[in-house]
């Protein structure tokens, strides 16, 4: 356990002592700010329309602002997660520091979990920035905080799963760009898998669409925790970390 913390601290320190963390945060803040501005603008124009026409439409901050925002954030995640995950192992392989880790008296799994945890924490820090915008909603409206919290939990679970896959991909190459590009492809694929369910009802289509990340994230954005989704994300994380471990082990046999 102490080894996991040691690795995790070192990774976080690396993220924050290089421009990566700040760059990602700035990008996220900018994009989220834009989405927030849009969502609020839409909400305001809708409420004006409602006043003008004299009809009373139910105006729900959670439903009309927070939920679409969370869905947007999960899309931004697709782009940011490969950038976070790509250096995890590729960098250590390129610089040779992987030899230090693998010849130290710690288990492979401790290295992997430590690194994955650090990447997930960094993503959580990015999400933290959005709290600034969300605070305004609380200042000027009465959104329900419970679905919001669940939405964030969903985002972190989603990132955890994709980062575990990214960590695995990062072990297979010394080149960060390749790791990032392949991870991006994998993230996007896991995202759009759901589309097949739109026109096909055969078993394979159901299975494919079940594997889609978006399908399992959506309930969280509504503030619903379903054990099926929890099991899904837990298995993606487990599978990703398991593959990482096997890949790291194979490094010893092949390199």
């Amino acid at each position: 356990m102490t080894n996991i913390i040691t690795i995790c601290r070192k990774e976080l320190k690396s993220y924050f002592s290089s421009p990566i963390a700040y760059l990602l945060m700035a990008m996220f803040a900018f994009l989220f700010g834009f989405f927030f501005w849009n969502a609020v603008g839409y909400f305001v124009s809708m409420s004006f329309q409602a006043q003008m026409s004299g009809r009373t439409i139910p105006m729900d901050v959670n439903e009309m602002i927070i939920r679409p925002l969370l869905m947007n954030v999960s899309v931004i995640g697709l782009f940011l997660i490969p950038l976070i995950a790509m250096r995890l192992f590729a960098e250590e392989k390129r610089s040779g520091t992987i030899e230090l880790l693998l010849t130290s008296p710690i288990h492979d799994m401790e290295i992997i979990v430590g690194k994955w945890l650090a990447a997930t924490i960094l993503y959580a820090c990015l999400l933290g920035i959005s709290a600034l915008n969300i605070l305004f909603l609380f200042a000027y409206g009465q959104p329900d905080w419970k679905p919001l919290l669940i939405g964030y939990l969903g985002l972190i679970l989603q990132a955890g799963g994709l980062l575990a896959i990214g960590a695995f991909i990062s072990t297979t190459t010394k080149n960060q760009i390749i790791a990032g590009a392949v991870t991006f492809g994998a993230c996007l694929m896991l995202w759009v898998l759901e589309w097949v369910a739109g026109y096909e009802t055969a078993t394979w289509a159901t299975v494919l669409s079940y594997m889609s990340v978006v399908r399992h994230f959506e309930p969280f954005s509504k503030g619903v925790i379903d054990t099926r989704d929890l099991v899904y994300f837990a298995s993606v994380i487990f599978l990703g970390l398991f593959l990482t471990a096997r890949s790291l082990e194979s490094l010893r046999w092949r390199s």
């Binding site: 070192k10 690396s14 002592s17 610089s95 040779g96 992987i98």
Partner: peptide
């Protein structure tokens, strides 16, 4: 204690 051919150091530390 092992010193590989390229010292396994982290430049950002």
């Amino acid at each position: 204690g092992y010193l590989p051919e390229n010292p396994p150091v982290y430049p950002e530390m």
